[in-house]
Simulated scan of single mutants.
Amino acid sequence: MTEITDKIDLGAVGVWRHSRTRPELAVEVERLGYGTLWLGNVTDPDLAVVEELLDATERLVVATGIVNIWSNPAERVARAYRRIAERHADRFLLGVGAGHPEATKEFVRPYQALNDYLDVLDKEGVPVARRALAALGPRVLRLAAERTAAAHPYLVTPEHTRQARGILGAGPLLAPEQKVVLETDRTRARAVGDATLSMYLGLRNYVSNLRRLGFDDTDFADGGSDRLFDALILHGDPARLAEGLRAHLEAGADHVTLQLLHTDDTDPLPAYRELAAALGLPTR
């Protein structure tokens, strides 16, 4: 097996995509200088898409954001990790999480379930240094610090990142997700991002986390207030988006992963190129 270094190098900025991402897009993301490609909602416990994307690239880290613990047996995921790590140990970060109570009937005692899942990964030889945990609240953030290499908060603000760094301490990696729309007009930006925001406002773990950050019922009504939209979905020109992404790094993140929201008929690559240039990424 490839020797595993202590810390995985995610780079400063990554890209968050759905798990159906094509290898061709991964190759371009790597060429543009993004350090990590995060795959959302991975439903195949054999992780075939992870292996496919790693095989197609040379330096890019692939991270799962996330593998759901209720629908992906830990033993099978561990076998998949070992298979992939034989050739790509320092380019694969296994992110796991409990998801949402609205999404699965098995959602019972999630904190204990996360611990039990990590126990199996321990037993099956998945290194702590190659594990990440989806984490929002203080308790799960502390669990991420104790039992994994990284916390991956989703749908958060730089203020959450600042608070999370305080909870995690200096050691664990902190890799928040940030949604962006490359559009300077808020009305047009909301036309792109409203459906996504509304979906998350129906999930109580996200709403509870947003309440901790100071948002209230007026922000959650009618698909979300402008204040909430502006905080959770950055919009503007490439320079403004780059500034918003860097705000997470300044607040204590080691890495920030951007989720580009766009219409289904839009090619995302031009936007990734513009953002890479604005961020000063080392295009290859």
Score class of each variant (00 low, 15 high):
Leu94Ile: 06
Val62Cys: 02
Pro73Met: 04
Gly99Arg: 08
Asp55His: 00
Glu75Ala: 15
Leu54Ile: 02
Ala74His: 03
Glu28Lys: 14
Ile84Gln: 07
Ile84Ser: 07
Leu93Met: 01
Asp46Phe: 01
Asp90Thr: 12
Val27Ser: 07
Ala98Ile: 06
Arg91Leu: 07
Glu51Tyr: 03
Ala26Leu: 12
Leu25Glu: 14
Pro101Thr: 07
Pro101Ile: 08
Thr104Pro: 01
Gly35Phe: 14
Glu102Ile: 02
Ala56Pro: 04
Ala98Phe: 09
Gly97Pro: 14
Ser71Phe: 01
Ala80Lys: 02
Ile66Trp: 08
Trp38Lys: 00
Pro101Gly: 11
Glu102His: 04
Ala85Tyr: 09
His88Thr: 11
Thr57Arg: 10
Trp38His: 04
Val42Ala: 13
Thr21Cys: 14
Ala26Pro: 01
Ala74Trp: 00
Ala26Gly: 08
Glu102Asn: 04
Thr43His: 11
Leu25Thr: 13
Ala78Pro: 03
Arg79Asn: 05
Glu86Ile: 06
Val67Tyr: 09
Thr104Ser: 15
Val42His: 10
Ile69Tyr: 03
Ala56Gln: 09
Pro101Arg: 07
Ser19His: 10
Arg59Trp: 12
Ala89Trp: 06
Thr104Gln: 06
Glu58Leu: 01
Glu102Arg: 01
Gly95Arg: 00
Thr104Val: 15
Leu54Ala: 00
Thr104Arg: 04
Arg91Gly: 11
Val42Asp: 13
Ser19Ala: 15
Thr104Asp: 15
Val49Ala: 09
Thr57Asp: 12
Pro101His: 11
Thr57Cys: 15
Ala48Leu: 00
Ile84Arg: 07
Pro101Ala: 12
Arg79His: 08
Gly95Ala: 02
Ala74Glu: 00
Arg76Cys: 09
Glu30Val: 03
Arg31Ser: 13
Glu52Asp: 05
Val77Trp: 12
Leu94Val: 08
Ser19Gly: 13
Glu51Asn: 06
Ala89Glu: 11
Val77Asp: 13
Ala89Val: 08
Pro73Gly: 06
Leu54Asp: 02
Ile69Thr: 05
Leu39Asp: 10
Pro23Gln: 04
Val67Trp: 06
Glu30Asn: 04
Arg59Cys: 10
Val42Asn: 12
Ala26Phe: 12
Ala63Val: 10
Tyr81Ala: 03
Arg22Gln: 14
His18Met: 11
Arg59Asp: 15
Ala98Gln: 11
Thr36Ile: 07
Thr43Val: 15
Trp38Asp: 02
Leu53Ser: 06
Ser71Glu: 15
Phe92Pro: 02
Gly95Gln: 04
Gly33Phe: 05
Val27Trp: 07
Asp46Ala: 09
Ala89Thr: 10
Ala85Pro: 07
Ser71Pro: 02
Val50Ala: 06
Pro101Gln: 07
His100Lys: 07
Gly97Gln: 09
Thr57Phe: 12
Asp46Gln: 09
Gly95Lys: 04
Arg31Cys: 05
Thr64Lys: 08
Val96Cys: 15
Lys105Arg: 13
Leu54Ser: 03
Arg22Cys: 09
Phe92Lys: 01
Gly33Asp: 05
Ala78Gly: 05
His18Gly: 15
Val62Lys: 00
Glu28Gly: 08
Val49Leu: 01
Pro73Lys: 03
Thr36Gly: 10
Thr43Trp: 13
Leu93Gly: 03
Val67Ala: 11
Gly99Asp: 12
Leu37Arg: 05
His18Cys: 00
Thr36Val: 14
